[in-house]
């Protein structure tokens, strides 16, 4: 789901690319990117419908989350947020309670086995505090009361291009391949306060396994 078409925007000085770094290290908008929900389709309603599987008839398969009780689901959210909400577009927001209820509905409908929930926003921890469904491992870029900060500015386009947590998470994940034996525990150590400035929050109590013994390839693999 991408609300803004930055890559193909005619004002993008480097067409069809989005980089993680002003020095253009990693093009995060490679040729294999597939955007299923774009522009005006990115709404809270569509997001919750996608998670819970309550989609209108005629929705193509590529726009469905075809998961079952054996699937590990990764949810990554980023954007502007605050205590208990994350903004969608410029007009609406999803609350932490809505997010928790959507995941509970997924659990009851057997749509996941384990979920890894990542969120990079201000006061990110507030978004997962209300979760009450089992088998969820959640990580947020900042605790309640903290701001999540961006990494650096790209003077060529005049905007801050990447958030600190995402930058270091991407840095870590670039070295992960399908044969990797890194664990989720290691991934949760990413971006310590000295570089992130905000404190990365982790919620482990809903997750039944010890993250140090969970291979990262259970959730993040290319």
């Amino acid at each position: 789901m991408i609300a803004d078409d930055m890559a193909c925007n005619p004002r993008n000085p480097r067409p069809a690319t989005v980089f993680n770094n002003a020095n253009q290290h990693i093009n995060v908008y490679g040729d294999d990117v597939e955007v299923d929900y774009r522009g005006y389709e990115v709404t809270v309603e569509n997001f919750v419908r996608l998670l819970t599987g309550r989609l209108p008839p005629g929705t193509p398969r590529s726009k469905q989350l075809l998961t079952d009780e054996g699937s590990n689901v990764l949810v990554y959210l980023t954007g502007h947020g605050g205590d208990g909400f994350l903004k969608f577009q410029d007009s609406e927001e999803i609350t932490s309670q809505e997010m928790a209820d959507a995941l509970e509905q997924m659990w009851q409908k057997q749509r996941y086995h384990e979920t890894f929930f990542m969120i990079d926003t201000c006061q990110a921890a507030s978004m997962y505090e209300r979760f009450y469904s089992p088998n969820i491992l959640a990580v947020g870029s900042s605790l309640v009361g903290e701001d999540s900060l961006s990494h650096h500015v790209d003077p060529a386009i005049g905007v801050y291009i990447i958030d600190r947590y995402t930058y270091y998470a991407l840095d870590f994940l670039e070295n992960v391949d399908p044969q990797s034996n890194k664990s989720m525990g290691e991934f949760l150590q990413v971006c310590p306060k000295s570089v992130c400035i905000s404190t990365v929050g982790v919620r482990r109590d809903l997750f039944r396994r010890n993250p140090d013994h969970v291979p990262i390839t259970d959730f993040l693999v290319q």
Binding site: E34, V35, R38, Y40, E41, G58, T59, P60, S62, K63
Partner: peptide
Amino acid sequence: NSLSGLLCASLN
């Protein structure tokens, strides 16, 4: 709807 899925465009 089907074309929107096939072509990744908001044809829906």
